[in-house]
Design a protein around this nucleic acid. Structure first.
Lengths: 210, 210
DNA sequence: TAGATTGTTAATCGATTAACAATC
DNA sequence: TAGATTGTTAATCGATTAACAATC
C-alpha cells in the first residue's frame, strides 16, 4: 500500500468517506472535485491533490464515480480488514462506544469487554459479556487481539497498558490522559482528549466575545 | 485578548496545561522550554514560539515558572470564565460526559440536561435532573445559556440544533455527524468524530503491517 | 467538436525549526 | 563573571492553492 502520505491527508479521508456515503444515499453516483470541495469546505485543488496520492480515480470532463471513490477510500484506510480489539472499561463511555459504534464498518471487531467492577461483570453489551479484567491474559491466548480501546480512569491506565503491551497488543484507542507513547514509543496510539476539545471550544467562545 | 493566533497553537495549549498541572503536582516549580519540549514531543523552539505569542512569561537563564505559566494558559483559554451549557442527550455518552468531566476547570457549567426518553426523564446525573427536551424553551428564558453539548443520534440533530439556534445558542460541542457549520456558518462548533479517529487508527495499523 | 474536469507542476502560504544576541 | 535559557529574527520545511495542459 502507499506510504509516506502525510497525516493531514489521512485525517481527511474519513470525512471524504462520510460525505461519499451521504452522496450515495442520495442516489448521486458522480461528483466533481469542485462539488466535493464545497462539502468538505476546502478547495477543489486540495481534493484532487488528496485523491491523487492514491491513484487517478477520476475521469477528465466527468469527475469521480461516487461508489468507486468510496470503495477506494475503504481500501486505502483498510476498513475491510478486520482487527480484533478488546474494550477495557465498561463505564458510560465504554458502554456507549460498544453499544453505538458500527465497528464492522471501521475495520474492527470487539472480541471482548473487560472491567474490574464486580457489579457489572457478567452483564452484556450488544450480547458481548463483560468479563473480569483479571481474566484477560487467558482470554488473549490463541486469539489475535490487535488493539485495545481504553475507557478507564487515568490512574488505572499505566498498569493496564503495561499488561496489554506484554500480551502483544500494540495499538490503542486511548480515552485517558495517560501518555502511552512516552512509555511505549513503538505503540500506535490514537488519543481522544475530550477535555482538550472542550478547552479549545472555550477559547473560541471567549475570543468571539472580545 | 490576543487575536490572530493560529488554530495549531491554540490546540496545543490544553496539552501544555495538562503537563504543567502534572509538573505542579510533582512539586516542580520551574521548567525550561527544553524540558517542556521533551514532554510535548516537539522542539524547544516551538515551545518558546508558542508561549511568546501571548507575552514573555519566561526568564532568561531560568526558564518558566510552572504555576505562573499554568495561570497564564488558564487566562489565555479563559477557563476561569464560566459559560452555561445544556447537555442534550443523556444516553451512555452524554451520561459519561456529565458524570466524569470536570467542567468547572474547563470554563463550563452544565445548567441542564435534556432528553426525549420518558424512561430517564426525572433521573439525575451528578444531582442535575434530566428534563424533557420539550421543556427546553421555557428553561432557557432568563438564563444565559451559551453552549450545547450534543450527544444525540444524527437524525435528531438538525431539528434540535435549529431550535437551540433559535434560542440564541451559538456554540456546539457536537458528538453527532450532523454538519452544523453547513447550515449555520456563524456557529462555533467543536466536532467529536469518534469514528473518524477509529478509521485513522485502522489506517495506521494496516500501514505498519506492510 | 465544445465544455467540463481531471492530473500534475509550479507558486504561495503558513507553520516549524534553527540560530543567536540579549540578559538573568 | 560564566552558564543557562529566553525572546525573536531568519531559514527551512511542508501543506495548500493556483494554473493549465491533457483528455474524456
Amino acid at each position: 500500500m502507499n506510504k509516506n502520505i502525510s497525516k493531514s491527508v489521512i485525517k481527511r479521508l474519513p470525512r471524504y468517506y462520510r460525505f461519499l456515503c451521504e452522496l450515495e444515499e442520495q442516489g448521486c453516483d458522480r461528483v466533481s472535485s469542485g462539488k466535493l470541495s464545497e462539502i468538505m469546505r476546502t478547495t477543489a485543488s486540495q481534493v484532487r491533490q488528496d485523491l491523487n496520492h492514491f491513484g487517478g480515480f477520476g475521469h477528465q470532463g466527468y469527475g469521480y464515480s461516487v461508489p468507486r471513490l468510496k470503495d477506494e477510500i475503504i481500501n486505502i484506510l483498510g476498513l475491510n480488514n478486520t482487527h480484533d480489539a478488546v474494550l477495557i472499561g465498561a463505564g458510560h463511555i465504554g458502554t456507549g462506544i460498544a453499544a453505538h459504534m458500527k465497528f464492522e464498518n471501521m475495520g474492527f471487531r470487539i472480541a471482548g469487554i473487560f472491567d474490574s467492577n464486580d457489579k457489572i461483570i457478567g452483564d452484556t453489551i450488544n450480547s458481548i459479556p463483560i468479563s473480569d479484567i483479571k481474566t484477560i491474559n487467558d482470554f488473549t491466548v490463541g486469539r489475535d487481539i490487535k488493539a485495545a480501546f481504553l475507557c478507564i480512569p487515568k490512574d488505572a491506565a499505566p498498569e493496564v497498558v503495561k499488561n496489554l503491551y506484554n500480551l502483544g497488543i500494540r495499538s490503542f484507542w486511548n480515552f485517558t490522559h495517560y501518555d502511552i507513547h512516552a512509555d511505549y514509543p513503538d505503540a500506535i496510539v490514537e488519543n481522544v482528549h475530550l477535555s482538550d476539545m472542550l478547552m479549545t471550544l472555550c477559547y473560541s467562545m471567549n475570543e468571539q466575545e472580545d
